[in-house]
């Protein structure tokens, strides 16, 4: 099925009676929409609203439509919203390969087939042969790439990027960014990026929404 992109239809976020932000936009497949704003402006809350795991302290309204499917009100696990945070958040009790296997949809059957999909996903991010490694032994850049491989292995219908490059040093940041945006374009995923960093917005190349505090 053709991915028709992600639509945020008159989405508003409020904390108590303080309106934080209002967004009404469409993101085409393969496009990255960047949202910039200071901390506390509700931009990360917007991502958790799209993902379906918003903190009950916030009030949100509006509709989320992805690939023609209305996601509003669906539980988070039904939304196929892949998320990358500023930390890789690899599950420490699983191996690197276990983290990828955890993401591969259950429809892919057979031990050997799932394993080879996981190996391939790791090879795609330049980490062939890392399958049995313990996540704790990886460098920061390697962790970030495993996190990317993991989220892609779940066949998401969109990507939500919550300042995913901010913990990496400058050199690594550029390369990881290129890898993520290349994957977004290659898989024609609509992506929503939240960041402080102007360079992230420039590299994303898509439209930018700026919100004030």
């Amino acid at each position: 099925m053709e991915n028709m992109g992600l639509r945020l239809d008159k989405v508003t976020i409020a904390l108590g009676d303080h309106d934080l932000l209002e967004v009404d936009c469409a993101i085409a497949p393969g496009e990255v929409l960047t949202i910039m704003g200071p901390s506390g402006s509700g931009k990360s809350t917007l991502l958790s609203f799209v993902a379906g795991s918003i903190d009950p302290a916030f009030r949100a309204s509006g509709r989320i439509v992805c690939a023609g499917r209305d996601l509003t009100g669906l539980p988070p696990q039904e939304r196929h919203a892949g998320i990358l945070f500023q930390d890789a958040l690899l599950f420490p009790h699983m191996s690197v390969g276990g983290n990828i296997l955890f993401a591969i949809p259950a429809a892919e059957r057979g031990r050997a087939r799932r394993r080879s999909l996981a190996e391939a996903a790791l090879a795609d991010v330049g980490l062939a042969g890392f399958y049995s490694r313990d996540p704790a032994t990886l460098s920061g850049g390697q962790k970030a790439r495993v996190a990317l491989a993991r989220v892609l292995a779940s066949h998401p219908s969109m990507l939500l990027l919550d300042e995913p490059f901010s913990r990496l040093d400058a050199d690594l940041r550029g390369r990881t960014r290129d890898l993520v945006f290349a994957a977004v374009r290659a898989r024609r995923l609509p992506a929503l990026l939240v960041t402080h960093d102007e360079a992230d917005a420039a590299a994303a190349g898509g439209p930018v929404i700026r919100i004030s505090a």
């Binding site: 958790s48 993902a51 379906g52 795991s53 539980p75 988070p76 696990q77 039904e78 939304r79 196929h80 919203a81 892949g82 998320i83 945070f85 958040l89 955890f102 993401a103 949809p105 993991r150 989220v151 779940s154 998401p156 939500l160």
Partner: peptide
């Protein structure tokens, strides 16, 4: 959130 995003209930 990561686990939910990967489709886990």
């Amino acid at each position: 959130a990561v686990a939910f995003g990967l489709g886990r209930s």
